[in-house]
Amino acid sequence: MKRIEEQNYYEILEIKQAASYKEIEDAYKRAKETYSGGSLATYSLFTAEECKEILDAVEDAYRVLSFSKTREEYNRRLAAGLSVEDLKPFHIEEPAKTMQPIVAESWKEIAPASKETLQCAPATIKTDVEIPKAVQTVKEAESFEGVEFRGSILKIIRERRGLSLNLIAEKTKININYLENIEAEKYHQLPAGLFLKSYLSQYARFLGLDSKKVVEDYMRFYEKA
């Protein structure tokens, strides 16, 4: 029974001190959903300013508790009854920077000529072409000059980036079977054209590729088959 400004970070996020990191994430997500405005649950009890105040407190709590280093320090101070005013949240790293570089001579080289070669594991290729960050779509598209994006190529690009099909399915909400069939070029098991185009374009964007080009190329193969 304390005002929000008197509550500790655990109380603000409505979790136990022993909460797991997943519980912290969940609590944060829920609080954001509840107090970001427009929630059915809040508008009749809290004003917009009050929601903002709660949200700010939630944000502070999350930024400290979601990293083991700052959380441990916070727990220590909490137990000792020390001030936490100067506790700075841990620096949040950009996740996109740690992508693996793709190693290839040229894209034509790894593009299998026929379906048979697909069965073999792709040969190890020497030179390294730095994969630009996912955001730099235009530049990236340039480096894929002359590449025809068929399923097998898309699969190679995806794997070189260390992305699992599961992850893409989860993020794009595309059924994993469709993604698998797209890569395996099982054209007769793909959804109708319009849906396929939409899936391809989402998938391409997720890989940081020029989605327009991917759709065009892929549909050419699709129509031939």
Partner: peptide, 8 residues
């Protein structure tokens, strides 16, 4: 929404 009501 139920969780939001609980929190509120």
């Amino acid at each position: 929404v139920g969780f939001s009501i609980k929190s509120t």
